[in-house]
Design a protein around this nucleic acid. Structure first.
Lengths: 230, 230
DNA sequence: CTTATTATTTAGACGAGGCTAAATAATAAA
DNA sequence: TTTATTATTTAGCCTCGTCTAAATAATAAG
């Protein structure tokens, strides 16, 4: 209802809630999880979450957790749209490296106007995904993500295609790029060692053994033919 | 000495001090002038200025005014460089209007990394001036501005060339663009009415009568032949 | 079912950056 | 030179977003 501008901190909280709800799958996210993700104390989270609840941006059940209202989701998706458009722009138009764009976009996403957002979108030809394969929310708040699993969960003996990789850790991204584990790549799932042992995959003609952390950071879809979808 | 990151507010104060020292010509700028420019109370200025003085960024003489130290000047010029590179980029690469870029750059200038600054600079071909004709400080903090006067002070009967126009007021910029009073334009100074009466000029074949406020917002140099300088 | 452990909230404080109102210094006018 | 005016500073308060320490709720272990 109240139409005050959201502060940077409020925007960051909404973005974090959205991210964690999606990642962890549940329908509520807890104070400590949020605090860890944001690099902030749990007490700080409690008070901010109350403020956001007062503003109608989240629903808050004490001791249970927090979720986004429609208004909160809208705001979070707008930030996410800014973020992913910026990542794409920085990468494609300004030649910034894959692993650099996340941090830069994190700062810029709060500062760009709707006008600039639109011009960036147009300059890029209205892209559907960012450099890490993540879908870019539409202007009207639709986020259409394909149904994915993690590479870690993929069936040995099958072939999958990389849809998206986590973009938060620059070092991980550099590593993935060296291994050619980038969106669009086709990956043979060779075999999985027992007891959490490494996952053996073949990509771009090379075989690699991947640890769980790496394989969990990669989202894949079953192999498909390259259809000119649309 | 202390190498803490400057806050947004600190950066804005340094930028304002730099701007006002240049504009007003004096060697000290007063609390109230600064307060008006920043849209803040004089009391707020006093306390911030003290903090900046503690940090070695300004010299502060109570009841006299404030000036920049070398470190403060460096920081101010870095912001100015960001600002003007961004204005140029938004205008040239993204097609934003002349009058829109100032406000957008004011928000973005605090958020861009040195890396991004360098890439924007390169993408533009290392420009020397922004869309309003203002010189862009170099990476090492040189600001080489030509010696200008205001259009208001120009001698009737002479021809001058517009070097730069004030960029803060979008409405003024729109007006100037309609009158073809843009950087590079050659202007015949026809005559100046008495007692602060309007200034009659001819530009692009049209004659216009300009009020003092407008004519003061335009910086000019004596007519020169277009030399392929460099 | 009782006890540890962990998650969460409450209470109280702090620094940043702003504000108003009152006091004081500097300057202009008489 | 005295008085009025304006510029500046001081004092005290406020909100935002954070923190730590202590209290309480929820959950897991025995």
């Amino acid at each position: 209802m109240s139409n005050t501008e959201l502060s940077r901190a409020e925007q960051d909280y909404l973005k974090a809630i959205h991210h964690l709800l999606r990642k962890e799958g549940g329908d509520l996210v807890g104070t400590v999880v949020l605090a860890k993700w944001l690099g902030v104390s749990a007490a700080s989270v409690t008070s901010m979450v109350k403020k956001l609840a007062d503003g109608g941006l989240v629903t808050y059940s004490p001791y249970q957790g927090v979720a986004l209202t429609a208004a909160g989701e809208r705001a979070a998706l707008e930030m996410l749209r800014h973020h992913r458009l910026l990542e794409t722009f920085l990468n494609q138009q300004l030649g910034m490296e894959w692993h650099e764009v996340h941090a830069e976009a994190d700062r810029l996403e709060h500062a760009i106007s709707e006008e600039l957002e639109a011009r960036i979108d147009a300059a890029l030809g209205y892209p559907k995904t960012d450099p890490h394969g993540a879908p870019i929310p539409t202007k009207d708040g639709q986020l259409h993500a394909p149904a994915t699993t993690t590479l870690w969960a993929a069936q040995p003996g099958t072939v999958v295609q990389i849809a998206e990789v986590e973009d938060e850790d620059p070092a991980l991204l550099t590593h993935l790029a060296e291994l050619a584990l980038t969106p669009g790549a086709l990956v043979d799932i060779v075999q999985k060692g027992p007891f959490g042992g490494p996952l053996f995959v073949r990509v771009a003609g090379q075989e690699h053994a991947l640890g769980e952390l790496v394989a969990q950071a990669i989202l894949v879809v079953p192999e498909t033919h390259f259809a000119a979808s649309g």
